[in-house]
Design a protein around this nucleic acid. Sequence first.
RNA 1: GCGAGAGUGGCGGAAUUGGCAAACGCGCUGGACUUAGGAUCCAGUGGAGUAAUCCUUGGGGGUUCAAGUCCCCCCUCUCGCACCA
Length: 837
Amino acid sequence: MSNSDQSGRYQAHILEQTWQKRWAEKNLFRVSEDPKKPKYYLLEMFPYPSGRIHMGHVRNYTIGDAVARWLRMRGFNVLHPMGWDAFGMPAENAALAHNIHPARWTYENIDYMRAQLKRLGFSYDWSRELATCDPSYYRWEQLVFVKMWEKGLVYRKQALVNWCDRCQTVLANEQVVDGVCWRCDEPVKQKRLFGYFFKITQYAEELLQCLEDLPGWPERVLTMQRNWIGKSYGARILFALEGRDESVEVFTTRADTLMGATFVSLAPEHPLVDILSRNTPQEQEVRAFVDKVKRQTHAERADEKQKEGVFLGAWALHPLTGARMPVYAANFVLMDYGAGAVMAVPAHDQRDFEFARAYNLPLAEVIAGPEGERDPAAVTVAYTEYGTLVNSGEFTGLTSRQALAAVPDKLSALGLGGRTVNYRLRDWGISRQRYWGTPIPMIHCPACGLLPTPEKDLPVVLPLEAEIPATGGSPLPGLESWVKTSCPRCGQEARRETDTMDTFVESSWYFIRYACPDYDRGIADQRADYWMPVDQYIGGIEHAVLHLLYSRFFSKVLRDLNILPNLNEPFVNLLTQGMVIKDGAKMSKSKGNAVDPNDLITRYGADTVRLFSLFAAPPEKDLEWSDNGVEGASRFLNRLWRVVNSVVEAGGDKISAYQGGEELSPPLKELYAKIHETVKKAGDDLQNRFQFNTVIAAVMELLNLVSLTEQNPEVKSHPAALAVLRLAAETAAILISPMAPHIADELWRRLGHDGYLIDQPWPEHNPEALTRDEKTVVVQIGGKVRGKLLMSSGADEDELKAAALADSKVRSHLEGQNIVKIMVIRDKLVNIVLEGK
RNA sequence: GCGAGAGUGGCGGAAUUGGCAAACGCGCUGGACUUAGGAUCCAGUGGAGUAAUCCUUGGGGGUUCAAGUCCCCCCUCUCGCACCA
């Protein structure tokens, strides 16, 4: 047999190369808009071109490819593209380490990784490939930026931002994970800097509401986004400051406890902290405290459980009673939530309670629980539940729930606050003090101020002649020839913005670019309307609030800019695949437990690697790596190879597959039924949850039965035997083809077909083939299996009862017992219920 | 603390609407073919017991003729958020 070595193993590489070449020559995976077919946009998260692909990529893209091929066989017009998330820090680090330009490093990596992906035989429409670092890509991003600026969706401000010393750049809130930089694990600091911000908060409510419209997303991701947006209903309350014009605004979700407020706490970063303490005896002490807190990293501060603070030397006035309340700066008050200030109610908030205790501040009991009012002197812990208001003047006697409305309404009437809604979500800071990114298309004119680059001057091309300074950081501010420009309004000398955009901006819209791949024709046209939204998105859970939230925001912005007026949500269905684990940890180079896909492909071939990735675990679950498991996948493909070839050698390629009609002997009939059962199961399992693992298991079962049938001596003599075996071989090849496409196409050809399986219709099962003459019926006594009967299919209740009671094994269990009842489920089960059981 | 998800053999994992628990694969045991086997094929493989039989889906209760699956309580693990006012 050709294409096999002496041991009978098929030669995967030769075969795979041959088929990959044929597919490419035929442009088999190139698609265009086709009104005659239903469209399906299938997308996997594009990779960062870090150098080589890893097993996580292999898994992600194998799942996607199997889905794509399967849908294509089912008659969908499938858009399945691939590209490169090509801007970012590692290119700059590599530039420093290896003295290579980030552009060269990036494009060389892309070339290498593209070849790796091609080796795996993925069915991408490569004509749509993109790299985000290409000016033809980011020019449209700059255009969107300018339009957003004009619409007020981008602004520049000086703000406290997250700063990573190692990356020498700003990080968005979403990029600070457990207080450290999401990319390099450096503890994140706070720094006051000018930067550009996307007004994602303007979309907070919509981003929250539309989560309801995403039933195809995992609950986990929806919850994470909901938490991140963090909507809460509450009140804003203004506290006047004694002897001053300013007042302090606080946000609270517990306006019902207002009458129990005894002091006010500000975040150390709060602007009033400086102002209030200035020229007071406390000034030095306040400054020392604020400095101490500011020196702490994000993580250190989050870890700090000790409530600490300092009196600012100022007094706030209770809005309803006018009582004097000391104003503190406190370490547990966060500047970036609510108003950065809280009214302190020590009796009913645990943090305030601890603070009050530490600084000897008074406590006022205003909420009584079911146990009644507590003695303030005996309180050891804050009572934080809802209850009934006490000691609360006109509000006394109201329930918390009633007071939550009544108190803010009263304040509102007094002009001292009112009901409000607060979101945890902050605007998206997109300025990065980096080189390898999309230049922010803004110009600073000494006379006219800050202006966007006119559309006709786009793109603002990132200058490739720049060299990364040895100290790290961006070379752009020092590149006079590039920075110097003229003001688009007055024509005088002006300077370009030298910040670049967060790379998450590029990945927020790349899925639209794939739909309209002609880079010179604008960001999107009616083709995007045809393809969008993405029907199925597949990627890692780590982007649950980063990329997946930004992309949703960006889609809504593009809609509101009238670029894609029909777009609302970008991703209809989301599949978050699990990690690839080895020795109990996520595979990674730094942990030293990585398996190189290249080595595996060389050793086993792409089909084996793909098959194992799909077989070892269902897509959403983590996949435990197993060298033996890969062997098993390889063994299976070799078995498939031998079995199908044996059918071919018996002449199976010269006859047509069994179509029904001709009478079959029992073993052949069994095989025929199994074929259709397998078809049904494969279809159902893919339809339901992309359960490739069970589909593969089903094909394995089919193949096991084929072997068994072939060896059965009485089968050989049957005139239809070869036709049934051929049907089985053919079905196995078709069903396995989305997962192991190369070997499947080769076997398809050996079976005498022309063309490619991806163009074959996905098979439908024949319900008639599933019906068997005989059914195994289980006999239970009191729910325990006591016997099995082989009954003719469709036998009625009485027949089943009689047969069950006649069974000798069953009878022995019934000895001396009274039968209460007999349950019969046709073709399945008889359950005999005994007295006293 | 809040939220989400999960607990099934030695391992990865199966099990439509409640209806034979452990499919399929790995590993292991024995055998066949072989100069050889890390190829291939066959048989076996949840636990206890010589056997009949009994037990078994984290634990405990319940509903039901029948529960891995439904209900209640508890335990453990993973993930996310977390001084959120």
